[in-house]
Simulated assay, not measured.
Amino acid sequence: MLDNNARGVYAIAPTPFHPDGRVDEKSIDTMVDAYAAAGCEGITVLGIMGEAPKLEAKEALDIATRVIKRAGKMKIIVGVSAAGFAAMRALSNGVMDVGAAGVMIAPPPSLRTDDQIVTYFGQAAEVIGAQTPWVLQDYPLTLSVVMTPGVIRRIITENPSCVMLKHEDWPGLDKISTLRRFEKDGMRRVSILTGNGALFLDFEMERGADGAMTGYCFPDMLVDIVNLSSAGKREEAHDLFDAHLPLIRYEQQQGVGLAVRKYVLMRRGIIASDAQRKPGPALSAETKKEVDYLLSRLARHDQRAQKLAA
Rank of each mutant, 00 (worst) to 15 (best):
K175I: 07
C162M: 09
S191F: 03
L111G: 07
P171H: 07
L201E: 05
T142D: 13
C162W: 04
P149L: 08
L143K: 03
A198W: 08
F121E: 09
R188V: 00
G122A: 00
S110T: 12
D210E: 15
T194H: 08
H167P: 12
G195C: 05
A130V: 01
R154H: 12
G129D: 05
Q116V: 00
R188E: 03
Q116N: 10
R180W: 04
V163Y: 04
W134C: 05
I155N: 09
R153S: 14
V127N: 04
L201Q: 08
N196I: 12
L199S: 09
G129Q: 03
G129W: 02
W170V: 09
P140G: 11
G172T: 06
T148W: 14
T178P: 01
A209S: 10
D185H: 10
I117D: 08
L201K: 03
V151F: 14
V135D: 08
C162E: 06
G150Y: 11
Q123G: 07
T157S: 14
C162K: 03
D185M: 12
D185Y: 11
E183H: 00
T194A: 10
T148I: 10
S177C: 06
D174W: 10
I176N: 02
V163K: 14
L199E: 08
A130E: 15
Q131K: 15
R188P: 05
P160W: 05
T132G: 07
P133M: 05
G195R: 06
G172C: 11
G150S: 12
R180C: 07
D115A: 14
P171A: 06
Y139I: 10
E204W: 07
K166P: 12
M164W: 09
M147A: 13
V151I: 15
A125C: 05
